[in-house]
Design a protein around this nucleic acid. Sequence first.
DNA 1: GAAATGATGTGAAACAAATCACAAAAAGCG
DNA 2: CGCTTTTTGTGATTTGTTTCACATCATTTC
Lengths: 227, 227
Amino acid sequence: MKQITKSVIKNSLKRIFLYRACIVRLKLMGVEKVFSYTLANETGVTSDQVRKDFSEFSIKGNKRGGYDINDLLEKMEKLFHRNKDNNIVLIGMGNMGLALSKYSKFVQRHMNIVATFDIDPFKQKMRSGIPVYSMSRLKEIIERFKVKVAILAVPEISAQEVVDELIRHGITGIVNFAPVLLKVPPDVIINNVNLCDELESVIYYVHKQMKVNGLKNLELLYRDMKY
Amino acid sequence: MKQITKSVIKNSLKRIFLYRACIVRLKLMGVEKVFSYTLANETGVTSDQVRKDFSEFSIKGNKRGGYDINDLLEKMEKLFHRNKDNNIVLIGMGNMGLALSKYSKFVQRHMNIVATFDIDPFKQKMRSGIPVYSMSRLKEIIERFKVKVAILAVPEISAQEVVDELIRHGITGIVNFAPVLLKVPPDVIINNVNLCDELESVIYYVHKQMKVNGLKNLELLYRDMKY
DNA sequence: GAAATGATGTGAAACAAATCACAAAAAGCG
DNA sequence: CGCTTTTTGTGATTTGTTTCACATCATTTC
């Protein structure tokens, strides 16, 4: 049964990513152990939260000694399967697809885009170091590289169609940049990244804050008036 | 006082975006009114949730008559300040910046990137329809176009520095694509988009599910064994 | 025009997430 | 060695969010 799959990534997991970024930075600085409140200060959460999150993912520290940074990173790598490489395919070589294909951070984190696809495989052939194939070779490549995860950067009009094909060929996780809600079976993970929504929500809060500040100012004004 | 600002966009607001996308589609199809359960079905939430969300943003419908689509869109436009245009600046014309500068959906939603900036303004001068300025002209442009919101697509190493400058010149909302936690005063809104984390969390869930399915299969196997 | 129906809107209940409070363990110190 | 300090880890509490249940109203039907 196909169904709308909400892109819900648990908050605790998101925070774990925060912690890790922080831990990596600390390691580069030569730090060897870290306390929950250090991570808390660096990431803007409470130290209780840090410990609760770690405990959820069964990450243990040393009473009084804090957390050993190397140990912590190792456990996280295991948790995120970063010891082994992950093969990814990228569908859609428009502007966004092209930028993503060149994004060097993926490789640094052992996520390798092994192939990209487009209905017009010649369009961007020269522009990225990664081969661009026509859609007809999807099945072949996915099977050869045992790919489970795809990045979708196609126009919204064709997104559902492409997703259906991806799933037929064994893809079970998708990061979707097309601004549509995809219908997928319940065992397929979708993570939607909607650039307009991201920008628009910031605009919403900016306007809201301006209103609040406006009111505050008025209040001050009122208070200053000697009636 | 500067502090880490978590990128927390309320869930109810995110859902409002979902509903709107859905409503826009329905309007294009010629539909004139919509019920909470229709939106619910289309977006994968419950109808109660839809009504609660609407109620939070003071959006009212008609008892029995559902919601009038035009009225709904009007109210949402007001809510999101989409009746007036929003001027945006984009900092960093690397791969991602270039792609974002060409992203046509922003304009469709009245969010206009009026200028882009890069330490090397010649790099991408020809590639986008939008002018690329050197960082020295930031203040001038921000003031001239009354810009409040910026998109940050610079390397992580220079992100904090650029943000400090943006805030000095009056920016109060930022969509940040650099994988760092920025320190900003509490009245500045930050929304972080971390591409690696988005991809990595999908990988996490895919692996997790594979483990669960593996277990399930074993269980079936076990059940089928005639001991 | 009264009764039945089908939708909204919202207080109450159930559930989930974050914070608090403190026991337990490790390290330092006299 | 035992006392103090520091930090983790987790049950208990609070806070926040979602779901439930139903009163309310508008429309249709007879």
